[in-house]
Write a protein that binds this DNA or RNA. Structure first.
Length: 498
RNA sequence: GCUCCCAUCGUCUAGGGGUCUAGGACACCGCCCUCUCACGGCGGAGACAGGGGUUCGAAUCCCCUUGGGAGUGCCA
């Protein structure tokens, strides 16, 4: 094995969906690994029995797959350093905990949660740090027996070194020094036998030969604890790189109350993985002063930790939307069709089996809508009138355009013209409107807008000739008739009212 | 409270002592294109948190203040 090979990991806990923060961490690890021709490990940290679920694991794996962050070792993939679920590595944690126990670097603690709470409260009341006071460090056998007799289940605490300082040599933040007297004897094995995060992460990273720990800045403060365990066990300390947090618009840590934050949700809302990856990469990393659009290949080629920013970044949905639009516009018509066909089916716009004629129609729709949507999901609203029999009239558009003076006359005079057009195509439709405009000496918009509202129900759509052509003569003309009926019924209603 | 991290336009950032009257992107505003909306093009407004140093010279280095974030769990 190449001892210099880069090995990084992403280690989510399956207690919910994959968040954009986690996704960004995964991405940076992935990019770093690929850039250095290293190995990207995925490890599931499911030691919290109460909160971990298989559904969450599934969701995280799915989101990783959607983003295209394929891992070299991990669940469903295996590898030489498995298992990759912490719940399947309990023997390992036990082994090293016992090693620490026998070395005198750990001890059993029988304090109850209530007692610990009291210790913290008293400390706070006296203005001391809320640290564990180490009262179980030197229990006598009699004391121990008494606790066991009471039915207490012990935890195992690490005997921390309070002397001196611990240096965290961080690839992004430089040398960060912590006073060891800030530490306390923290728990490494819970009373249910599961390891705590700070312990399991060290054992796993060491055993899995992780060379670079790239993770969120929220872990920086815990790093001294972990370093002490590395040192106590004689493990090599990996390189650390703590990347900045992602914040919501209010500058607090990004969470659900800021709106969509799970990757799965963005996927459902029609964001392309390419756009997500590109946007996430730019959250805390920049290449130079000019480039913002990067393919994944370019990201791999250009990514480096030295260009990762130190300051937290606010998640900007507007920019993601813009970028998604860029990627949608870059798609070829065939690609766009492949990606959106399942959506059209799910909306009931097209049947399960799509014939070549319908395929051509869908592609025509996509062609005219491609540059007008920011997400794939936007297509539903934007294209419904092409596929549904009933037009849903937008009230404002109707009253503003259809019920306007002269609209009915325009529509009724246009109707026979449209029925008479020889070859009903986009090019042949255009002269009809220009003729009408010249005859009336009005603006082109005055003749087009009523038609637009009549056939789409709204005053916003792609070019009217495109829309009419895609709709087909029969349907377009029927809708114009329907609109005329609508106008008429309203006029009669007014007569009655008046 | 204690510890640690951070500080350039509203947002993401370029910038690592002179080339900065601070560059780009998104968003915003205006104009152009135009059948509406988008796309596209052109233009505009908009930032070095404050105060001390160091230096011939500071957005860039140091200190303090302020502001923000994180950690301080038998969560990860």
């Amino acid at each position: 094995m190449d001892m210099n090979q880069v090995r990084v990991r992403f280690a989510p806990s399956p207690t919910g969906y994959l968040h954009v923060g986690g996704a960004r961490t995964a991405l940076f690890n992935y990019l770093y690994a690929k850039h250095h021709h290293g190995v990207f490990v995925l490890r599931i940290e499911d030691t919290d029995l109460a909160r971990s679920t298989e559904a969450s694991t599934r969701a995280i794996l799915d989101s990783m797959a959607y983003l295209g962050l394929d891992w070299d070792e991990g669940p469903e993939k295996g590898g030489d350093y498995g298992p990759y679920f912490q719940s399947q590595r309990l023997e390992l944690y036990k082994e090293y905990a016992e090693k620490l126990l026998s070395m005198g670097r750990a001890y059993e603690c029988y304090c109850t949660p209530e007692e610990l709470d009291q210790i913290r409260q008293e400390a706070a009341a006296q203005g001391r740090d809320p640290k564990y006071d180490g009262r179980c460090r030197n229990l006598t056998d009699t004391q121990r027996r008494e606790f066991v007799r009471q039915g207490r289940k012990p935890v195992i605490r690490f005997k921390a070194d309070f002397e001196g300082t611990t240096l965290v040599d961080d690839l992004i933040r430089g040398q960060v020094i912590f006073d060891n007297n800030q530490l306390d004897d923290f728990v490494i094995i819970k009373s249910d036998g599961m390891p705590t995060y700070n312990f399991a992460v060290v054992i796993d990273d060491a055993l899995m030969r992780i060379t670079h720990v790239i993770r969120g800045e929220d872990h920086l403060s815990n790093t001294p604890k972990q370093i002490q365990i590395y040192q106590a066990l004689g493990f090599a300390v990996p390189q650390f790189a703590h990347i900045p947090m992602i914040l919501g618009p209010d500058r607090t840590r990004l969470s659900k109350r800021h709106g969509a934050t799970s990757v799965g949700q963005f996927q459902e809302e029609g964001y392309l993985a390419e756009a997500m990856v590109n946007y996430l990469a730019l959250l805390g990393w920049a290449y130079d002063d000019s480039q913002t659009i990067f393919s994944k290949t370019e990201l791999i080629e250009k990514f480096s930790l030295s260009k990762v920013s130190k300051n937290p970044a606010v998640f900007d949905l507007a920019k993601l939307q813009w970028m998604n639009g860029v990627y949608i516009r870059e798609l070829s018509l065939d690609e766009l069709y492949q990606r959106t066909l399942p959506l059209f089916k799910s909306w009931g716009f097209v049947p399960q089996e799509v014939g070549s004629e319908l395929e051509a129609k869908v592609k025509s729709v996509l062609r005219v809508l491609q540059e007008r949507v920011k997400t794939l999901a936007d297509l539903k609203e934007a294209s419904c009138y092409f596929f549904q029999d009933e037009v849903r009239y937008d009230e404002k558009a109707v009253s503003k355009v259809l019920f306007k003076e002269g609209a009915a006359e325009i529509l009724s005079s246009l109707l026979p013209e449209l029925l008479a057009v020889k070859d009903y195509t986009q090019e042949n439709l255009e002269p009809v409107f220009h003729k009408a405009q010249e005859q009336r000496q009005c603006k082109l918009a005055d003749v087009i807008q009523p038609v637009r509202v009549a056939v789409t129900g709204t005053n916003v759509s792609p070019g009217i000739y495109d829309v009419l052509a895609i709709l087909g003569r029969a349907r377009a003309c029927q809708r114009i008739k329907d609109a005329l009926a609508l106008i008429k019924s309203r006029q009669e209603g007014q007569v009655h009212d008046g």
